[in-house]
């Protein structure tokens, strides 16, 4: 299984290299290191959100509210910055994470305590969070001139040739890698998603574990809320509208099973990078943005078909054994 996953990631990595190669034939500078650094920087937020989403999906749930969470938290920190310019950026960062985690906890508690289907809960909060942005902002924009210089400069700050935004993405990848492979909680996500009934009997609290997954996803969305608003220097009701679909798509392309229990940090990162590259390359090779949507869509279907095939192969082995036993 691990070998299968590894090879699945290897195939995705190869697909990304082929993609970069193809783009280079039309636009030779695409593969230049400076450009790739830009692409990574551009994809950082998607990568982080995909990682947060990954733990949710692995525990057999889904979080559709991430983009709304991002937008609401972004509006909250932008408003705070506007009204109290003295609050230092690191404090705002912590507030963003905590606020996002709180919004995630709302999802988590509803799923845990009321036993509601995650897709319904997060579809609801998706709308509610958007509505709250409107209430906070009265539908008005917060523009660049209303934000402090430090607020806007933070994600762009250059450290060893990479922006702080990119560094945060790298740190998030590392943190998730440790979480998923080296902590009991990470293991619990897989057990809960792989076989919730068995998880109960091993002493894992399924609802609580899922709640934590939502809190993690929410915290990451909150962090990304600040980063998004600061990077684009604007906050309004509709920022990142529909971005949750891209986040889920990145996970699916990365081989994370929507049925839960299967997925990896590498997969989520590569899935996000794949989408990021498609998005960045199409304008420069002069292809209409409509094609961009079509290509993303096709990539999702190919990835799902590929995963379904490899999972079926596994199923067949079990079936064969079942036959022998039956």
């Amino acid at each position: 299984m691990i070998q299968l996953l590894k090879s699945r990631e290897a195939i995705l990595a190869a697909a990304i290299l082929v993609l970069i190669g193809l783009i280079s034939t039309r636009y030779s500078d695409f593969a230049a290191p400076s450009n790739l650094i830009n692409v990574f920087n551009d994809t950082s937020i998607l990568i982080m959100l995909a990682l947060g989403q990954m733990v949710v999906i692995v525990s057999r749930c889904i979080d559709l509210s991430v983009a709304s969470n991002l937008a609401l938290t972004g509006m909250v920190v932008a408003t705070l910055n506007m009204m109290a310019p003295g609050v230092p950026v690191p404090v705002l960062l912590l507030i963003a994470v905590a606020f996002g985690a709180m919004l995630g906890a709302i999802n988590g508690v509803l799923v845990w305590k009321l036993d509601l289907p995650p897709i319904v809960v997060t579809l609801g909060t998706l709308t509610i969070f958007r509505g709250l942005i409107f209430l906070i902002s009265n539908g008005e924009w917060i523009n660049a001139h209303e934000m402090t210089a430090g607020f806007k400069a933070f994600p762009r700050y250059d450290v060893f040739g990479l922006s702080l935004l990119s560094w945060l993405a790298i740190a998030t990848i590392a943190a998730f890698f440790v979480l998923v492979t080296r902590t009991p909680l990470g293991r619990a996500f897989f057990a809960v998603g792989g076989n919730p009934h068995a998880a109960v009997y091993t002493g894992i609290d399924v609802g609580y574990t899922r709640c934590l997954a939502f809190i993690i996803s929410g915290a990451v969305a909150g962090l990304c809320g600040y980063l998004w608003v600061a990077r684009y220097a604007v906050a309004y009701v509709d920022i990142a509208g529909g971005f949750e679909l891209e986040v889920v798509a990145a996970c699916v392309i990365g081989g994370i099973s929507i049925a839960g229990g299967i997925g990896s940090v590498g997969g989520a990162v590569l899935g996000a990078l794949f989408l990021g590259i498609v998005k960045n390359a199409l304008p420069v090779v002069d292809i209409s943005p409509f094609w961009q949507l079509a290509i993303s869509g096709a990539a999702i279907i190919i990835a799902v078909a590929f995963n379904a095939r490899s999972e079926r192969k596994k199923g067949r082995i079990i079936l064969k054994q079942a036959e022998r036993l039956a």
Binding site: M1, F190, N195, Y201, G261
Partner: peptide
């Protein structure tokens, strides 16, 4: 159903 976690 309640024993093994397939996939792990």
């Amino acid at each position: 159903k309640q024993g093994a976690v397939i996939g792990l």
